[in-house]
Amino acid sequence: MVQDTATGFVREIMLEYAALTGLDPTGARPRRYLWTDAFAVCNYLDLFRRTDDETFRDLALRLVGEVHRTLGRHRGDDPRVGWISGLAAEEGEQHPTIGGLRIGKDLNERAIGEPFDERLEWDRDGQYYHYLTKWMHVLSRVASVTGDFTYLRWATELARTAHAAFTYVPPSGGGKRMYWKMSIDLSRPLVPSMGQHDPLDGFVTYSELQAARNRFGASVGIDLSPEIADMAGICRGTRFVTDDPLGIGGLLSDASRIARLTIEGGVFGTGLLESVLDAARVGLASFAARGSTGYPAEYRLAFRELGLAIGLAGVPEIREGLEAHPGVFGRAPSLLRRVQGLAEYLPLGEAIVGFWLDEQNRKAATWLDHREINMVMLATSLAPGEFLKV
């Protein structure tokens, strides 16, 4: 009964999202935003799995196509037209991700020579690496659900393009680094600093795509071995600990994928999973001690908290995987202790979801100002299965 109630609520949210953003019924000017749409596709796929209603599979596929046709092309207020890759119309349709995908922000990107304004930059368009990795994961999931390997090819083309644009060797030498935000055409960095978890996201996502390629056949997509090696090198010098709830949720989501990929084919060594779990535990302790989940809705950002709830939802499956496949993990008892420590925070995730399920809390300005991303991530927190799969 609880499962049926959750499914019904997710269905309600996702049909509302389709109407709000011009997906269904089709709007003259659909509103597409890459991060939100990535979670939305997974939600539609999860609803299809739960209900066998092909309406939701079709919504997922329509949304993928609409993202590519909207965010894979230049903006309407940009003098440039067509695919941001520069490909001609027909070839661009065959390779819609090969130039990357825009974020979908309200304002156009900062012009060449225009002074940097940190506050304004959050509202400007461009390309974010951590949004692109979400979309690679989505395309991999669509390929798995539909059996259409075209989506995996698009995912690997996006991976190669993003990697080439966002990674660089500093003029002072040393190992590779990453830019956080690039211009729409990927020709220049807009924010040169490196996202704390971007290397980990890239390493795990590329590995997921490589595993899918090996499973489906080596002729599908692009071999990402060089890119995986690059990301492994960048990860070695990166500290993962954060007390940001969305960042902690991302760590836990990556841990779920690492565990699944290790069980499926020994993709990772035990050390990476240990490091990610340890970082998540430290961050969770810090976040919980802050007590911000006791604040009124007006002082809370739902999508950041819900990102944590989504990550925590994967902890029981990590534990089950370790218990069912002890031989796969070289230090299974040590890992189990780590996961059991994280399981102490499962009530925190449940409390976050319960808080935002309260209709009164969803009337706060902090909810309404970010309505679409909040509602989609609330739906994912109730049905995270497809998002956490590989």
Rank of each mutant, 00 (worst) to 15 (best):
residue 385 G to I: 06
residue 378 L to V: 05
residue 326 P to N: 07
residue 355 F to Y: 13
residue 375 M to Y: 05
residue 359 E to V: 14
residue 337 R to F: 06
residue 364 A to E: 14
residue 316 P to Y: 03
residue 371 R to T: 10
residue 363 K to Y: 03
residue 378 L to E: 02
residue 363 K to W: 04
residue 328 V to W: 00
residue 384 P to M: 09
residue 371 R to I: 10
residue 329 F to Y: 08
residue 382 L to N: 01
residue 334 S to R: 08
residue 333 P to I: 09
residue 323 E to N: 14
residue 359 E to Y: 12
residue 339 V to Q: 04
residue 334 S to Q: 10
residue 373 I to A: 09
residue 361 N to I: 06
residue 358 D to S: 10
residue 321 G to L: 12
residue 388 L to H: 02
residue 347 P to L: 08
residue 338 R to V: 00
residue 327 G to I: 01
residue 318 I to V: 15
residue 366 T to M: 08
residue 340 Q to S: 14
residue 351 A to D: 13
residue 365 A to I: 02
residue 385 G to N: 07
residue 339 V to D: 02
residue 315 V to Y: 01
residue 338 R to S: 14
residue 325 H to Y: 04
residue 352 I to L: 09
residue 329 F to K: 03
residue 358 D to G: 06
residue 383 A to K: 07
residue 378 L to M: 12
residue 337 R to D: 09
residue 365 A to G: 07
residue 315 V to N: 01
residue 377 M to N: 05
residue 348 L to W: 13
residue 383 A to F: 11
residue 352 I to A: 11
residue 317 E to Q: 15
residue 353 V to M: 12
residue 326 P to S: 06
residue 365 A to C: 01
residue 382 L to K: 01
residue 333 P to T: 06
residue 358 D to L: 08
residue 337 R to S: 10
residue 340 Q to C: 11
residue 320 E to S: 15
residue 361 N to A: 10
residue 362 R to M: 12
residue 353 V to Q: 09
residue 349 G to A: 11
residue 374 N to F: 12
residue 318 I to H: 02
residue 387 F to H: 13
residue 352 I to H: 11
residue 345 Y to Q: 01
residue 346 L to A: 13
residue 317 E to F: 07
residue 384 P to V: 09
residue 347 P to W: 10
residue 362 R to W: 09
residue 364 A to T: 12
residue 380 T to M: 08
residue 350 E to I: 05
residue 377 M to F: 05
residue 356 W to D: 06
residue 319 R to I: 00
residue 381 S to E: 11
residue 365 A to M: 05
residue 326 P to C: 06
residue 351 A to Q: 13
residue 325 H to F: 06
residue 343 A to W: 10
residue 321 G to V: 04
residue 321 G to W: 03
residue 376 V to H: 01
residue 322 L to S: 04
residue 316 P to C: 06
residue 342 L to V: 05
residue 384 P to N: 12
residue 325 H to R: 02
residue 324 A to I: 00
residue 336 L to F: 03
residue 363 K to S: 13
residue 370 H to A: 13
residue 345 Y to R: 05
residue 317 E to D: 15
